[in-house]
Structures are given as structure tokens and as C-alpha cells.
Design a protein around this nucleic acid. Structure first.
Lengths: 205, 205
DNA sequence: ATCGACTTGCACAGTGCTGTGCAACGGGCG
DNA sequence: CGCCCGTTGCACAGCACTGTGCAAGTCGAT
């Protein structure tokens, strides 16, 4: 064991990685993409994919796990000990945006009724955090909405999806999209537009 | 031709109608529902469905056409000659809500990448109206958002979806959801929460 | 060079769905 | 009654995809 990676192993790992990446993109385009489509897109034969993942579901599961993990990390990052709910939300949105762009797969898959349950479950903790944050903001009258916190969390999520879609369609550059998403989420929560803009600008300096 | 509907014909029509209704519900639960699932749920044999619709795609197409038509009608209803963009948006949301609840299928199907294209196309005119309305509001400074009008239209749509989901999950009653949706859409567009609440309340008297 | 791993190409069984054909059945309507 | 239309049940071909088995190939590492 001279080195921890033999040549062929590292090559195999690279393949595995590429399969995952390409599967992400391919499933984003078509949630029903077959193993063959994915394999070919990854420049590999179908059989090889089965060499790395036991089944289609196993592949997707790995994908979702990675995405949820990254999302979860980003979501709680950078808003430790922030007392203002509005600022916390803004920071969270900006942090999530960084990686959400890559993991837009969640957007596509989350909508698929069947798979949705699984994602919902795993995403539960993140959502709970969001709800708590939103509830605090509503209690402190920083936010203002006729919706209860959990419903507002849905709006929060869907707003992010909407902005992502806008980016996909070229209506926005990915660069400015993060700030826009943050501002929009805040205003949807009832924060005055001027204050939201100001706050996000300050965070983004 | 004593009457315009012979007995068997009216029976057939009723079947056709029921198949459509049940297909709506079934596809809502599972966008991949097979013809057999749909037929059985409608208390009919698969073969019978093919007697009414040429193919699965034909069935869905009919469904989408109906939904889009109803949606389109509701969208433009009741906001003729309304000068205030905010009020027009509020009226539109309230009107759409009435039927959108029934046609939640669009929500499920609209997310399916393959079918989405078709829906997007047919929904184009409606979306264009929305965009025009939003743009006017932005120009007149009634609305305030960092997003261009088309992107704001996405947010508009997704917000409706989010509120529908909240209703599905029992977080909101369908009764109050309409008003909540309207208020949330307006605040997301940058209308001050107080003014949005007030405006919607006035419309809903 | 030779070993070991990853990969390839092919073949195969199994499954589930679609769309169609056809004979039989049933119930209103003339 | 007997006609017609819709409905039923069954059977069938076709297709696309999944997951597996196996022999042969490839390429880096030892």
C-alpha cells in the first residue's frame, strides 16, 4: 500500500464522480431519464453504471443524499448567533444559493410526487429550522404575513425555485440572482422592500 | 332526433366526463399513473378509456386544454378596466384561486419536464398578461422588486403553488387560502404588507 | 511482463405499459 | 321485439426499461 489510491481505483472513482455529476444534469432535464441515457451522457456503458450503483434508485438516493447534505450545511452556515431574523434569513438564502444552483436537481426531483416523500423526509430538519426562524420573525413583527410560519416556509422554498427557473431561462444572471432571491424572499415575508434591499446590499458588500 | 341525447349517448358522455375527472385526481397523485390505474379508479375497464380517447397523451391533452381554458378565463375575469395594478393582481389571484384548487393537476404536471413544455406553450398568453400587469406595476412604482417582470411572474406562479401545497397539508383552510395567496403575491411584489392586506380585504368583503 | 481492477459488449429474463382486434354482453330507443 | 351503441373481457404484439451473467478487453501499477 504505497499510496492510498491505485491508478485504476482513482480512475474508477473519477468515473463514479462523473456519473453522479452527469446523472444530476440529465435527471434535471428529464426526471425519467433511463440508466442508458445517463450512462451514455457520462461516456460510459450502462453496465458500468451498475458496477458503481446497485440500482437506479440507489444512484438517485446517493445524489439526493449529497445534495441534501450540502444544502443543509449551507443553510445553517453563516447565520450562527445572528439575532435579527431578517438578517438571518437573508444570510441563509445567500448561502444556500451558492450550492442550490448546482443542485437544482432537487427542484426537479422534489416535484416528482413519488420521490418527493423521500426528499421531504430528509429535508425535514432544514425545513424545521426555517420554520423556527420565520416564526421568530413573525412573533417579533420583523415579518408580516397572513400565513402561518410553516406555510410561509413553502413560499420561501418556492420563491427560490422560481428565481432558479428565471436564471435557467436567462432572465437573470446567476451573479445577481442570489441577491434578488434574498430580497424577494424577505419582501414576500412582509419586510419593506427598501429595508430588504438595504439589508441584503449590506451583507453582500 | 326527439331529444339531443339518446340514453346510451348520455351514459357514454357521463363516463367520459367521469374518466376525465378521475384522471385529473389520479394524475395529481401520481403523474405517471397508467391507463389501467385511471380506468379502474373510474370504475371502468382500460379498453373503455381507449374508446373515448385515442391515447394516453390524447387524454392528458384534453385535460390540460380544459384546465388552461378555465384558468385563462378566470385570469382575465373581473379585472377588466381596473386601473390600479395592485388591485388587478389581487383580483386576478382571487379569481384564479377558485378554479386552481380544482385544477391542481397543472401544478403536478407543470413540473414534469416533458409535459411542461406543452403546458408552457399553451399557458403563454396567460403568462404574457401577467407579465404585462407586473411590468406596469413596476413602472408605476406600485410594485417594487429587483426582479424583472418575467422573473416576477415566476415568483407569482410559484407562490400560488406554495399556498396550494400549504392547503394540501392542512396548514390553511381553502376558504382563507385565497386571500392569503393574494396578500402574499402582492407583498412579494413589494407592496407594503399593510396596504396589501387592506386592499384584499376590501375586494373580498 | 503480469496481475488486478475496472470496463466493455452482448445476451438474457423479467416486468409493466401501450395500443389494437375481436367476440360477447347489456340496456335504452324506435 | 330487435337494433345500436357503449361496454366488457381477453388476447396479442410491440416496446422500453431494469437488473444480471459472462467472456473478453484495457490500462495502470508492481
Amino acid at each position: 500500500m504505497t499510496s492510498m489510491t491505485t491508478g485504476s481505483t482513482s480512475r474508477a472513482d473519477a468515473n463514479r464522480r462523473r456519473i453522479l455529476d452527469v446523472a444530476l444534469a440529465e435527471l434535471l432535464r428529464d426526471p425519467d431519464a433511463s440508466m442508458d441515457q445517463i450512462a451514455r451522457a457520462a461516456g460510459v456503458v450502462r453496465r458500468t453504471v451498475y458496477g458503481h450503483f446497485p440500482s437506479r434508485e440507489g444512484l438517485i438516493s446517493t445524489l439526493v443524499d449529497e445534495a441534501v447534505q450540502a444544502l443543509s450545511a449551507a443553510h445553517s452556515a453563516g447565520r450562527e448567533g445572528v439575532e435579527d431574523p431578517a438578517e438571518a434569513v437573508a444570510r441563509s438564502v445567500l448561502a444556500v444559493w451558492e450550492i442550490a444552483d448546482r443542485y437544482r436537481l432537487l427542484v426537479a426531483l422534489a416535484q416528482r410526487t413519488v420521490t418527493m416523500q423521500g426528499i421531504r423526509e430528509r429535508l425535514g430538519p432544514v425545513r424545521e429550522e426555517s420554520i423556527g426562524l420565520l416564526r421568530r420573525g413573525l412573533d417579533e413583527n420583523v415579518f408580516s404575513s397572513p400565513l402561518p410560519a410553516p406555510a410561509l416556509a413553502y413560499v420561501h422554498e418556492q420563491t427560490l425555485f422560481a428565481v432558479m427557473e428565471a436564471v435557467n431561462d436567462g432572465l437573470l444572471t446567476a451573479r445577481e440572482a442570489g441577491r434578488c432571491a434574498a430580497v424577494t424572499v424577505l419582501t414576500a415575508a412582509g419586510v419593506p422592500a427598501s429595508r430588504a434591499t438595504e439589508l441584503v446590499a449590506k451583507l453582500n458588500d
